[in-house]
């Protein structure tokens, strides 16, 4: 791959090149550089004639500037973000799987998984009453009062 290093011509260098151009001694490369220099906007008026020679003004007219409207840019950004968010959603929902790990081995047989799930539930308590009592506690706001009553009976 060839790399081209472009540098700006100074007015002095440009003047020299223009002189060389009129003498018919410029190389293709030098003419290209000169062309690049003359296609700059806001050049001093003295370069106007050279600009005309190089057809800069005609070129400028023919160049159709293409700019993406601001609203379109924002729409594109929003679309990209939506796609990203949607992908994230799909990815995370796929993660909600049904699985079991038994001694480090992943099991996907749903019957086995359910059996182990039920087994873990039955491990919690062997007594049905125990669990029922716990449910009572869930919505029992008077529990503190009841516990304090025990102390009030002590004489």
């Amino acid at each position: 791959m060839r790399l081209k290093f472009r540098y700006k011509l100074t007015y002095e260098q440009a003047d020299k090149l223009i002189e060389k151009y009129y003498e018919g001694c410029t190389t293709v490369e030098e003419e290209k550089r000169l062309h690049g220099f003359l296609s700059q906007v806001n050049l001093p008026a003295k370069y106007k004639s050279e600009q005309t020679i190089f057809g800069y003004f005609n070129e400028r007219k023919n160049i159709k500037s293409f700019q993406i409207p601001g609203y379109l840019r924002w729409t594109a950004v929003i679309a990209i973000l939506f796609i990203g968010a949607f992908s994230f959603q799909v990815f995370t929902s796929n993660n909600k799987q049904n699985y079991a790990y038994i001694n480090g081995e992943k099991i996907s047989d749903i019957k086995v998984i359910k059996t182990h799930a039920l087994a873990s539930l039955s491990d919690l308590t062997n007594s049905k009453n125990e669990m029922e009592e716990s449910i009572k506690n869930l919505n029992n706001n008077n529990i503190i009062e009841q516990q304090l009553e025990v102390f009030s009976e002590i004489k």
Binding site: N98, Y99, A100, I102, I113, H116
Partner: peptide, 10 residues
Amino acid sequence: VIMVELSSEM
């Protein structure tokens, strides 16, 4: 260790 994860459909 036995670890189980079940989601809504199951």
